[in-house]
Structures are given as structure tokens and as C-alpha cells.
Amino acid sequence: MNVFRFLGDLSHLVAIVILLLKIWKTRSCSGISGRSQILFAIVFTTRYLDLFSNFISVYNTSMKIVYITCSYATVYLIYGKFKATYDFNHDTFRIEFLLVPSAILAFLVNHDFSPLEILWTFSIYLESVAILPQLFLVSKTGEAETITSHYLFALGSYRLLYLLNWLWRYFSQGFYDLIALLSGILQTVLYCDFFYLYISKVLKGKKLSLPA
């Protein structure tokens, strides 16, 4: 464990908690893509199937449980409790265009052709594009609530910090994982324009609005 990976996990946890609290406190999921949250729940489910079979550390197991619990709770709040506030008119990104290619690619490009490994690879590919419905929703509505932009900033930072973690692990212990690395680069690149808007607008106290 190095500082980049720890900060990455922390940033990821903060993002997940910010979103859950935003929906719970405001009793509204306006501006949030339920489809992205479904994809994240699928990512965690397919990645952490070894939760009980492969103990790494208390930290690892407890974080996996928190991620899975929070992601399902968020999906429940969006499609269950606060579905009246769900923006189904704008949350229309076709997630099958993300699920099917990720699944096919996971069968073709993986480290080991075993069920757990293929599911892990699928979760890595899917995670790299899982934010697209959310970014699509923000582009359609043309703006995002400030709390939502903080959520996206924390979520985008997590994988950027993981890229630094992989750089660190490569130079310190010769470790590299091309599948996770290339997916992580794609995932982070998707946030670039958002990062620019966040830093140039939100940090100056303005609302995040996309150029119409």
C-alpha cells in the first residue's frame, strides 16, 4: 500500500459517501444518472466476488463491503425511495453499448481464462466507461449541482491517484497490470473536460455549467 493508492481509495470512498448523503439529505436524485449507478453496482459485484474466498486484509474486505453496500443503497434510493425525483427524461444513455463490448473484450483480453478473472476483467473495462451516462446527463441538462460536481471530482481523482499508484508500483517493485492501467487511463481521460470546468468554475464559486 502506498500513499497514492490510499488517497485513491479515500477519494473513492468520499465520492460514494458524498453521493449517498446528497440524495439522502436533499431527498432528491435530480442531476444524478441512475444508469451510471447501476453500472457501478455491477462493477463492484463482478469485481468483489472473491470477497469471502480470498482474504487480503481487514482494510480490503471492509472497503469492499462498504463499496458494495453503498452502491446498492444508492441504486435503491434512486429507483426506489426517491424515484419521483429521478430524471428519467435525460438519463437515457444506452448502457448496453457499454455492457456488451466490456463483456466481449473481457473474454478476448484477460490475464487468465477463469470465471473470476474474466469477471474481474469485465469489471475493470466496465468501470472505465461507467461514468459516461452521468457525463451524458450533465451535458444534456447543461449544468450540475455543486455537490454533484464535488462527487465527480472525487470520483475522477480516485482513478487518477491509482494511475500514480501504478507508476509508483512499477518503479518500486516492477509491478504492472496493463489491463488495469490502460482502462484507468481511459477512465481518467473521460474526466478531463470535467476537471477543467471544475477547476476553472466550481473552485471559483461558480456553478458548473457546460457551454450551451
Partner: peptide, 10 residues
Amino acid sequence: GYMTGSHDEL
């Protein structure tokens, strides 16, 4: 080298 088997990252 490549990481196979158990993945130790979240």
C-alpha cells in the same frame, strides 16, 4: 510481472 490470481487492489 503480470498480476494474476488474487488482485490485492480495490
